[in-house]
Amino acid sequence: MKLVDMKVNEFLDVLKSDAPAPGGGSVSALSGAEGCALFVMVADLTLGKEKYADFQDICAAAKEKGLPLYRELTAAVDKDTDAYNLISDAFKLPKGTEEEKAARKKAIADGTLVATEVPFRTMQLGYEGLKLAETLVGHSNPNCASDLGVGILQLRSCVFGAWMNVLINLPGVKDAEKASYFGAEGQKMYEEASVISSRCFSAITESL
């Protein structure tokens, strides 16, 4: 069964078990999906209301662009666990002969690359979601300000958590060019997400 098809309590039971996956990567993706869901909800609760006429275009755009992010982040919950399992399976391969050692080494390298690419993509999605959520700060139904704030915090957790999952796998990425790209772009997104989320949180809490 896919993780996203589980009941909440079932997912949490698996998460707290001694199974190594799902772990932080899947939770990061879930946090991002929740963050997108919240800012789409805020947009929906603003759209169609005459007293928020000035916010209609902003909210419509946030919803339109946010829904694909929500869907991809939801899928990433399982993708991250699948990526972990690739590495886990690779380490279990036989290594009795030189051919087996070479095949095992390649499988580990391939799995590590996937396990870096998946959280990096999660990070990108969370970062894009965070930028969209910011457009709604001060431009959406003020009764939903706390919901928007929680969504922003979830998206921040998504970016930060995914970044840690990139970093822990990065030393195992054998392609130097890809490793450099993941490291530089990930650091940039991490720093910008920190600034955006802090700015948004301050603006929202001051408005409450």
Rank of each mutant, 00 (worst) to 15 (best):
N9C: 01
G25P: 13
F11I: 08
D13K: 02
M6N: 10
S26C: 13
G35P: 15
V14M: 01
G24V: 10
V27A: 15
G24I: 14
E10C: 09
S26W: 05
S17D: 03
A29Q: 10
G35R: 04
A33K: 04
S26K: 08
A29F: 06
V14H: 00
C36N: 07
K16S: 10
G35S: 07
P22Y: 03
A37H: 11
A37L: 14
K16I: 05
L30N: 05
A29D: 11
D13T: 01
D18T: 11
L15W: 04
E34I: 11
L15D: 10
S28P: 13
L30F: 06
G23D: 10
V8Y: 06
A21G: 05
A29L: 09
G24T: 10
L12N: 02
L15C: 13
A19H: 02
F11N: 13
G32V: 02
P20S: 05
G24E: 08
E10I: 08
L30P: 15
M6R: 05
V27M: 15
A29M: 14
G23Q: 09
A19M: 04
A33C: 09
S17N: 04
S31R: 09
G23L: 15
S26P: 15
S17L: 00
S31K: 11
S28W: 01
S26G: 15
G23M: 12
A37F: 11
N9E: 10
A19P: 04
G25W: 04
K16F: 07
G25T: 09
E10L: 13
K7G: 14
A29N: 13
S31E: 12
N9Q: 07
V27H: 07
P20R: 02
P22V: 07
S28G: 11
M6L: 15
A21V: 00
F11Q: 09
N9L: 04
S28T: 04
P22S: 06
V27N: 14
M6H: 02
C36R: 00
E10F: 12
C36E: 01
P20A: 02
E34Q: 11
S17V: 01
F11L: 15
A37K: 15
